[in-house]
Computed example of a mutant assay.
Amino acid sequence: MLLQYRGLSWLAGGDKGLDGHITIPNILKKYNSNLFGQSYGIGSADVYDVAYLNVAQPFAVASDLVGQAQLLVDRVLSHPE
């Protein structure tokens, strides 16, 4: 997949704010402006400045979940906040 619009993902996207795009992070940010970890922009899970805590991979299958979960735990534990 060439382009991954992570910032617009309904589950993890943070682009455009709640008025511009309805996503779970944009809804949560309405009640907690300190929320962090949502994706911004276009890019892959390997580009931290785009993906942040969104480690989902396109075309992943259930057998890939353990690796994704470990990557997420590693990112959360290494985050300064």
Rank of each mutant, 00 (worst) to 15 (best):
I24P: 04
D49E: 14
A51R: 11
R75L: 01
L53P: 05
E81H: 07
V66R: 15
F59Y: 15
F36R: 13
H21V: 03
H79F: 05
L53F: 15
E81A: 11
L18F: 15
A45I: 07
Y48I: 04
Y31M: 03
E81V: 00
F59W: 13
G37V: 08
D74I: 01
M1E: 08
L28Q: 11
N26T: 06
H21D: 02
Q68K: 13
L72K: 04
N54R: 02
L8I: 02
Q57A: 03
E81D: 06
S39V: 09
L35T: 09
V73Q: 08
L72S: 01
Y31F: 15
R6I: 01
S44L: 11
L18D: 01
A56P: 01
A51N: 04
S44F: 13
Y48F: 15
R75W: 02
H79Q: 01
R75V: 00
L28A: 14
D64Q: 07
Y52N: 15
N34S: 15
G41I: 09
G37P: 09
V61I: 13
F59Q: 12
S44Q: 09
Y40T: 07
V73N: 05
Q57H: 12
D19M: 11
V73W: 04
Q70V: 11
L72P: 08
D64T: 10
R6L: 08
S33G: 07
R75E: 02
K16H: 07
G7V: 04
D15E: 09
V73R: 12
A69H: 11
K16R: 14
T23Q: 11
T23H: 07
S39G: 08
T23E: 04
D49W: 14
G43V: 06
D49C: 00
A12G: 04
A69W: 11
S44H: 08
N32V: 00
V61H: 12
G43F: 12
P80H: 12
K30S: 06
G7W: 14
A45V: 08
P25A: 12
A51Y: 05
A56H: 10
V55S: 05
Q57F: 05
K30Y: 12
D46H: 08
Q68G: 01
N26A: 09
H21F: 02
A12C: 12
W10M: 04
Y31C: 00
Q68D: 05
G41M: 13
V76W: 04
N54V: 06
L11I: 01
S78M: 04
D64H: 14
G17M: 06
D46C: 01
S63T: 12
